[in-house]
């Protein structure tokens, strides 16, 4: 109930999402497939969506990428959605608790990594450097998944970080690294993998302590269940797993 309050931020994005999906034409899915997915999945899902469109003439895949909690709110405010992929289990649980989906499957996992600007100007070698006062450090805010994961990793390593900013999402922290405005940030390994040449990653020992898992589900009221199922199957196939691995995700 409480979470429904978050309708504040929600519905604007949805105008224009067609629901003229038909689904079964005998040979393969067609119509429109609407996928709501966590922002960190942007690159890999877009690629998989293109593949699915190429293989099924008459199928159009539409994505809405945003923070998982915003997406969960939009779905509970009855946005017409076929597939929901969340960056953490609590946000998927919001949708399950609302009776809109059941049996979500975990399809990928992500660990934290230290991201530093190219050339590593701060000379960062490990988690302990995040406590150095003279470095500019970005962490995610504890309210968002990457921030609570960061708290766990730092706590289990016994390190008190000295962050200069607690960012609202992982991409905001990464942007500050890309611009060279911070010397280090704790972000997901997949973000480092897709960031390109401006960012270097330093693996964190014991990062598995705070493994972040990604569940996906087909919504109970999916306007196009056939296409939704096809997308989830692609995600779970060898091809899908390979694409996820290339994008820096781990096997769950």
């Amino acid at each position: 109930m409480r979470r429904r309050l978050a309708l504040l931020a929600a519905t604007g994005l949805l105008a224009g999402c067609g629901t003229d999906a038909s689904g079964d034409d005998g040979n393969g899915p067609s119509g429109t497939l609407t996928v709501f997915a966590a922002a960190s999945l942007t690159d890999v899902f877009t690629e998989l969506g293109d593949q699915l469109e190429d293989e099924n003439a008459g199928l159009e895949v539409r994505f809405n990428f945003a923070g998982s909690s915003a997406l969960a709110t939009q779905i509970t405010q009855s946005a017409p959605v076929d597939v929901f992929a969340s960056a953490d289990e609590p946000q998927m649980q919001v949708v399950v608790d609302a009776g809109l989906a059941d049996r979500p499957e975990v399809f990928a996992a992500n660990v934290l990594e230290i991201a530093v600007p190219r050339g590593n100007p701060g000379g960062v070698t490990g988690l302990a450097d995040l406590g150095r006062d003279e470095l500019a450090v970005a962490l995610c805010a504890p309210e968002v998944p990457c921030g609570s994961a960061a708290e766990q990793v730092l706590a289990s390593a016994g390190i008190t970080a000295a962050p200069d900013t607690l960012d609202e999402d992982v991409r905001a922290a990464l942007t500050k690294v890309e611009l060279g405005e911070v010397d280090a940030a704790l972000v997901y390994a997949s973000d480092v993998a897709t960031a390109g040449g401006e960012v270097e990653g330093i693996p964190v020992p014991d990062a598995e302590e705070a493994l972040n898992v990604y569940p996906v589900c087909v919504l109970a009221d999916a306007p196009n269940p056939a296409a939704a199922q096809a997308f989830v199957e692609l995600l779970r196939s060898d091809r899908g797993r390979e694409a996820l691995a290339d994008a820096g995700f781990r096997e769950p």
């Binding site: 409480r2 978050a6 970005a138 200069d164 900013t165 607690l166």
Partner: peptide
């Protein structure tokens, strides 16, 4: 950036509260 006491203004606090506790937001 967002750091309590230095740069966290009310709109930032509201946005982050919304992520965890909409009532507080």
């Amino acid at each position: 950036g967002n750091f309590p006491g230095t740069t966290q203004t009310m709109p930032l606090a509201v946005y982050l509260a919304l992520q965890r506790d909409p009532e507080a937001a």
